[in-house]
């Protein structure tokens, strides 16, 4: 990483840490903003960047485009919630178990799909199918309480993974996002990541150069599944309610894919940039619709903007917004 990039990262992190304090200060000084609303929006940016990064690691770096990533998200959300609500586990303890469950589901889907040699759109479709099967199962079996969903009893204590002050869940989302960035950054440096990129670019050549393509693909899907499941638990503990269409609904899959594609698939900061932009659009259109009466019935307006944006990005910026920064300067990145 060059000195300039490093300085930029440090500045960004500092700004993110100070952000809740600043908006509280502004609100306290009488500027007409709701501090908790803004902190909540910030939390969403980092949370969506985190689950987007989980997609990006498999879909962007390794080129294994999934349309059903929500299968891992829902696995994590249900796993920790069942352990917590039904079996009385502390949610902090249930979290790593849910993460491991996500890895297991990733490994299993990868083993099945990649052993069968599914690639490209076939792989995308099979992941979509898995997500739908999980959704229908969650709807019909007893231990998930079916379509009623699962309610987590509100008990706002930090040791219970619930926070009275939204600032703390904001910081938790930030921490997750930083961890995911570190993982992605490591992929740009190390052997595993180099192998994933080789597989994405050309599987035959990768195989010829000694890469066990099947194993690496299963590994990356397990890693991605673990991260996404960790996001699922976070979501459940933040909103204290999940049901099959929230936990396994296709819109979360699309969201993860979208932030990565918009920001730049296969780049470290792509999902974060994409999440910033999409959250801004989301909140912007929502407040626009509340101000302009004509737009009130056009709901959700954000989806229309998303769609238009995706068309633009795919047509004009195949490398996403990160592509705007141009090809990284040669040489600089290669300080070992």
């Amino acid at each position: 990483m060059s000195r300039g990039t490093l300085a930029l990262c440090a500045a960004g992190l500092l700004a993110a840490i100070l952000y809740p304090l600043v908006v509280r200060g502004l609100a306290g000084a009488g500027v007409g903003v709701s501090a908790n609303y803004l902190i909540n929006v910030g939390m969403l940016v980092f949370f969506v960047a985190f689950i987007g990064q989980s997609w990006n690691i498999a879909g962007g770096f390794a080129g294994q485009t999934s349309f059903g990533h929500v299968v891992f998200f829902g696995t994590g959300a249900y796993c920790s919630t069942i352990l917590h609500v039904t079996h009385g586990w502390n949610p902090w303890l249930a979290w790593p178990v849910a993460t491991a469950a996500g890895a297991l589901v990733g490994w299993a889907i990868g083993a099945l799909a990649f052993r069968a040699g599914l690639k490209g759109s076939y792989f995308a479709l099979i992941t979509l199918a898995f997500a739908e099967v999980f959704r229908i199962l969650a709807n019909s079996v007893e231990f998930t309480r079916g379509g009623l969903g699962m309610l987590i009893k509100a008990d706002q204590r930090p040791e219970n993974f619930q926070f009275r002050d939204p600032m703390w869940i904001y910081y938790l989302a930030l921490a997750l996002c930083v961890v995911s960035l570190a993982i992605a950054w490591q992929l740009t440096r190390g052997r595993f990541g180099a192998r994933l990129v080789a597989i994405r670019e050309n599987e035959d050549a990768a195989r010829a150069l000694g890469i066990d393509v099947y194993t690496e693909k299963v590994k990356v899907l397990a890693l991605s599944g673990a991260m996404c499941a960790a996001g699922g638990t976070f979501y459940a503990q933040k909103y204290l309610y999940i049901d099959p269409s929230i936990a396994f609904g296709v819109d979360k899959s699309v969201e993860m894919l979208l932030v990565s594609m918009v920001g730049g698939a296969g780049t470290v900061f792509g999902p974060l940039v994409g999440s910033l932009v999409l959250t801004a659009i989301n909140e912007g259109t929502r407040s626009l619709a509340s101000v302009v009466p004509a737009l009130k019935n056009v709901q959700p307006l954000s989806l229309i903007v998303y769609g238009a944006m995706l068309i633009l990005i795919v047509a004009r910026l195949p490398d996403g917004l990160m592509g705007l920064f141009g090809r990284r300067k040669s040489g600089k990145r290669h300080d070992a």
């Binding site: 440096r189 190390g190 052997r191 180099a194 192998r195 990129v197 080789a198 670019e201 050309n202 035959d204 050549a205 990768a206 150069l209 000694g210 890469i211 040669s330 290669h334 070992a336």
Partner: peptide, 27 residues
């Protein structure tokens, strides 16, 4: 079958990673 979106150094490093886990050595 070049890896189109990465540079020559990284292309060749894919081969080099077979015998080393160290980035500096692979490079």
């Amino acid at each position: 079958q070049p890896f189109a979106k990465i540079d020559v150094r990284e292309n060749v490093m894919v081969g080099a990673w077979l015998r080393t886990g160290e980035r500096a050595e692979a490079m």
